[in-house]
Every structure is written in C-alpha cells, then in structure tokens.
Design a binder for these strands. Structure first.
Lengths: 143, 143
DNA sequence: GAAAAAACATGATATTAATCATATTTAAGA
DNA sequence: TCTTAAATATGATTAATATCATGTTTTTTC
C-alpha cells in the first residue's frame, strides 16, 4: 500500500512535529539517527517534502528542517501523495485501468468500502492529530 | 497492497474458474492471451498455485491447468498467500516490526479497522463467489 | 568577505520485483 | 515404443525501488 519511502517520510514528519519548530530546526543527520533511516535516503525525501511545502527548511549554519504550525494541519495523505503520488494509493486492487463503480473489477465491490474508508481517514487526520497521539502515549514510534 | 504477481494470479484463477474444469483443461498459452499477461510469467505463477494445490494441472498432450469444484471454495486470500506470502498482507502500515494493539504505530488505530475488515473479506469470499459475480455481469475482468 | 555549516541537486550503485528463456519431465496417441 | 504436446524446474535478464555518494548553493558567523 505505502512505499518504503512514504513510511520513512511519515516517520520523519512526525518526528519533526514532536521535536522541531521555526526556532529549533533539525539537521538531516539527527533526524536520520533518531528515526533509524539512512541519512542520504531520508535527506532526499525531506528535500522533496520541503519543495512541496509540506515541511520547511533553511540552508546554512543553524539551518535544518522544521514544520510550522500551519503545515501541521495538513492531512496525512499529503505526505503520501508527495512521495508515492496519488495514483498508487487510489489505483484499482487488480491494477485495472478502467475499474470503477459502473464497471467494477471482481474485487471492487468487496474491497471498495474499506478502502475508501481508509483513504478518507488519511484525508481527514492531520499530522498534528497523529503527533498528539504520540505525545499522549496512545501510539509509539520505535526506531 | 497486492503485488503485480498476485493480481495476475487472481485474474488467472478467475479465468480458470469460468472456463475450465477437469475435462477442459487450459493451456498456459491460452490463459496468457485471454488475461493479457506474458506467457512465461503467468506460467510461473500457475505452477506455484498448482504446487500449493490451489489449482490443478496435468502434463502432456491434453494437459493443462484447471480448477476443480473443491478448490473453487477456497478463499481469495489463499491465492494471495501463495504468491505474496502472509507477511506482506498483514504487515504494519509503517513497516514496524512490533506494531500491535498494545503498542500501536501512529497509523495503527486509524487504519486497523478497515484493514482488518478487508482481510476478513478476503478470507470469507471464495473464488467461486467472485466467479459468480462475473457470470452475472456484476463485475468485469477486461484484458 | 572568508570559512564553515547546512540543505540542494544530481547521479551512481545495489537490491528486489517483474519478465523472459530454455532444457527437462511426463503423458497421450499413433 | 516413438513422437509430440503439455507442464515443470531453473536460471537469466530487465525494470523499478531503495540506497548511497558527492559536488553546488545558500546563509550564518567571525
């Protein structure tokens, strides 16, 4: 469902949400170590997210990545879309090009409701929502 | 969610269900053409399914693949498990090793219900169920 | 304004998944 | 029993992901 890259990106963004703000930027090196994802790999993903304005970045000394208040209200799915693209998450279960309500594939009617539900949740839950859960120990993010 | 291979396997099995029986075996070549999947590729998948007794096969002239009455009552998920393995379909959304009810990842509580539902459906719906839908034009399986 | 510290851009390598090819085995039918 | 038609087993190639490396640009600080 999600690529490895999306998973890493999500972890990184949640980590930033908990540990960074405009005044406390975080370097790739630290993020990488804390979320246990290779430095050069997560760097690339963070750069993509910054370019698409999901997170922010600053070059030079004292620079780094951070996520501001406004961006924390973005839905989870925004991250996934940047990394994996809309296509991947919405594509038919059997990979059929024209599978839809009027011409459903054999799995469509079976799977569609739960799948739609899943996507709706990713659209409605914000980055902040998930970060709150982590803060309250309602969820965990091990290395 | 499903690998390409699983998708192809599913298409092939459904095709066999509609067009084969013990007396009318189908050759790889025909299956391949009808479901529009490369011959050598679908051959390998069919062989895996046959070895694991999801479908049946016979060598030699008049040989081919078919699926008998008993096997048609197998759940859809049986196909997926043979091709992708149990792991893939059940693994944590964030790819975390020990993500579970007592130590959920940030996506777990959000996604788990719809995900579980989806798996239950794949466990309860049989190959035959899906084939029936196709026969009744309730669903479609284009090339 | 020079040095250093950070992200940025780009491309190379490695690993995994998808695809293709072919020699071997089995069974049918003449 | 020989020929032929099929699956089977195995391995090679190609394409897509994931991972790594490095030179370039920007910004801070002295």
């Amino acid at each position: 469902m999600l690529s490895n890259s999306s998973k890493y990106a999500l972890k990184a963004v949640l980590y930033l949400t908990l540990h960074s703000d405009e005044k406390n930027k975080m370097m790739v090196k630290d993020i990488s170590e804390k979320i246990n994802v290779p430095k050069a790999y997560i760097a690339k993903l963070l750069q993509q997210l910054a370019k698409r304005k999901i997170i922010s970045s600053a070059k030079g000394p004292k620079g780094g990545f951070y996520i501001d208040k406004a961006n924390r209200n973005q839905p989870i799915i925004a991250i996934i879309e940047v990394i994996d693209g809309k296509r991947r998450i919405e594509s038919c279960m059997l990979g059929l090009e024209d599978c839809n309500l009027h011409r459903p594939c054999p799995l469509h009617s079976l799977i569609s409701p739960s799948r739609t539900k899943m996507i709706q949740l990713l659209e409605s839950k914000t980055i902040n929502d998930l970060a709150k859960d982590l803060e309250l120990n309602k969820s965990f993010l091990p290395d």
